[in-house]
């Protein structure tokens, strides 16, 4: 806690200032903003249709006409990377949000509810966690077919157990705290206690954890698309671009680079941002992990 906390607005401002004082944080923010900008304005920034096939221009190297070159069907890779960024970031943000909501709700129920429900839910979380991500993805795609929805479901299934467990543990501790007893003794109902007293105390750390998980989510999407389990061709996705370039890696390495570099940049950007956020909000953790 810091002195400026009496005014929430000022405290938030101070946190932002401290974030911008960390070189790594500035670097992370820059990369993330760059990627977001590219994804949001993909339509304006790309000169070519991302899916337009042009056999005459296939396997062209990077040039002023095609900043990142073209692939085996003559599609402009720069345009495809920008549009692929849309998919990567929207999947990452949407599925993280969904995991957060579901994780928080399940965690609160497990932590505050009766013991048998808690045990049942822990068993459920642990059984999901025991599946390797790729096997889980394969199983789901076999069931539902490859699609963006399948990617989102895999991400949510992978993330929720961890989030719910964190919320559950903290809820268990808060359940015994005196201010919860005080609220109970003032006639607050269970939903009210969870919403007003438990939630604000538990979501902060989880948000930081989630921002550090975004790179993992991006990697899952790219990985599934690479394996053909994610978006269907010809929709541009970084993982799909990687796959396109993979077969021709010896002669035309720029295709793989065009698919790989944005994954690396975004992953690094969110990782730096997440770690700096953690340090800024919880200075005690600095230098750990």
């Amino acid at each position: 806690m810091y002195a400026a906390a009496s005014d929430p607005k000022r405290a938030r401002l101070a946190a932002v200032q401290r974030l911008l004082r960390e070189p790594l944080g500035v670097f992370g923010v820059t990369l993330v903003v760059l990627m977001l900008f590219g994804a949001i304005f993909a339509d304006w920034l790309s000169i070519y249709e991302p899916n337009k096939i042009s056999p005459r221009d296939r396997f062209q190297g990077p040039s002023w006409d095609h900043l990142l070159g073209t692939d085996q069907l003559g599609r402009d890779l720069f345009s495809r990377v920008l549009h692929g960024g849309r998919i990567a970031l929207s999947v990452a943000l949407f599925s993280t949000l969904a995991s957060l909501v579901i994780g928080i709700v399940l965690g609160l129920i497990a932590g505050y509810g009766p013991r048998w429900l808690d045990n049942l839910m822990l068993l459920f979380f642990d059984s999901i966690k025991s599946f390797p991500t790729v096997m889980l993805a394969l199983a789901l795609v076999t069931l539902f077919g490859p699609s963006l929805t399948a990617v989102v479901i895999v991400v949510v299934l992978v993330n929720v157990p961890g989030y719910a467990r964190i919320i559950r543990t903290q809820t268990l501790a808060l359940k015994e705290s005196e201010f919860v007893t005080a609220a109970l003794s003032m006639g607050a109902s269970t939903p009210r206690i969870l919403r007003v007293h438990v939630m604000p105390n538990v979501v902060g750390p989880l948000l930081i954890l989630a921002s550090m998980d975004i790179p993992v989510v991006i990697a899952i999407e790219a990985g599934m698309s690479f394996l053909g389990l994610g978006v269907r061709p010809p929709t541009p996705s970084w993982g799909a671009i990687l796959n396109d370039g993979f077969t021709a890696i010896r002669d035309t390495p720029w295709i793989v680079l065009a698919g790989g570099l944005p994954i690396i940049i975004t992953t690094l950007g969110f990782t730096f941002l997440g770690e700096t956020l953690r340090d800024v909000f919880d200075p005690r953790l600095k230098g750990r992990g």
């Binding site: 705290s177 005196e178 201010f179 007893t181 005080a182 609220a183 109970l184 003794s185 003032m186 006639g187 607050a188 007003v196 007293h197 604000p200 105390n201």
Partner: peptide, 17 residues
Amino acid sequence: RGPRLSTVFQDPMGALN
């Protein structure tokens, strides 16, 4: 609880959120 019957607890440090 609250309107008719209310409580003050021992530990002032923990009684407020």
